[in-house]
C-alpha cells in the first residue's frame, strides 16, 4: 500500500468511529460542568457552583419560574437551528419553562467559565438559575422533557 492509501484507510476508519460516537452522545443530557469538566479537580477561574449561571449577565432576570433551557449557539451551526426549534417547542408547551438562546461567540467569558465546548450546548437551569444538567448536540423533545423531569 502506498502512503496515500494508508492515510485513506485511516481517515475513513477515524471518520466512521467519530461519527458513530457523536451519533451516540448527541443530545444526551448528563453531568454538569463540575461533574465532567476536563479539569474537574481544579474548577476554572471564576467558576463557582453556588452562583447562578447567569448571575452577572444581562439575562439574569430572564430565567423561568420552574426551569430555563439555556442554549448556546453560534452563527456557523446548523444543528443549533434544530435545537432552537425543539427547545422553543418544549418551553412553549411547559408552564414556567423559558428558552434562552445565547450567541456563544459574543459571550466567550461565559462560555469559558461554563466550559461549553461546542454548539449547540443546552444547559437546564433550575428555578434559582443553577445548572442541573447539560447536553451537547441537538436534543430531541423527549430528551429535553426527561431532563426537565429531573427537577420534579
Amino acid at each position: 500500500m502506498s502512503s496515500g492509501q494508508t492515510v485513506l484507510v485511516v481517515a475513513l476508519l477515524l471518520a466512521a468511529a467519530f461519527g458513530i460516537y457523536r451519533g451516540f452522545v448527541d443530545g444526551r443530557f448528563g453531568g454538569t460542568h463540575r461533574v465532567r469538566g476536563v479539569t474537574s479537580d481544579q474548577p476554572e477561574p471564576g467558576y463557582d457552583a453556588r452562583i447562578p449561571v447567569l448571575a452577572d449577565t444581562e439575562h439574569a432576570e430572564d430565567i423561568g419560574s420552574f426551569a430555563t433551557l439555556l442554549q448556546f449557539s453560534s452563527t456557523f451551526c446548523a444543528p443549533c437551528r434544530v435545537a432552537r426549534r425543539v427547545l422553543a417547542e418544549v418551553a412553549a408547551s411547559t408552564p414556567g419553562v423559558v428558552h434562552l438562546e445565547i450567541d456563544a461567540e459574543h459571550h466567550l467569558e461565559l462560555v469559558r467559565r461554563l466550559g461549553v465546548q461546542r454548539t449547540p450546548t443546552t444547559l437546564v437551569l433550575d428555578a434559582e438559575g443553577h445548572e442541573v444538567t447539560r447536553a451537547a448536540g441537538a436534543p430531541t423533545a423527549v430528551q429535553v422533557r426527561a431532563a426537565l423531569a429531573m427537577l420534579d
Binding site: L8, L12, A15, G19, G23, C77, A78
Partner: peptide, 18 residues
C-alpha cells in the same frame, strides 16, 4: 479534509462549523 467530508456526507455533521 476527507474525514470532514465523510462526516458531512454520511452523518450530516459539519466539523469545520464546530
Amino acid at each position: 479534509a476527507l474525514a470532514a467530508a465523510v462526516l458531512n456526507a454520511v452523518f450530516g455533521f459539519c466539523l469545520g462549523c464546530e
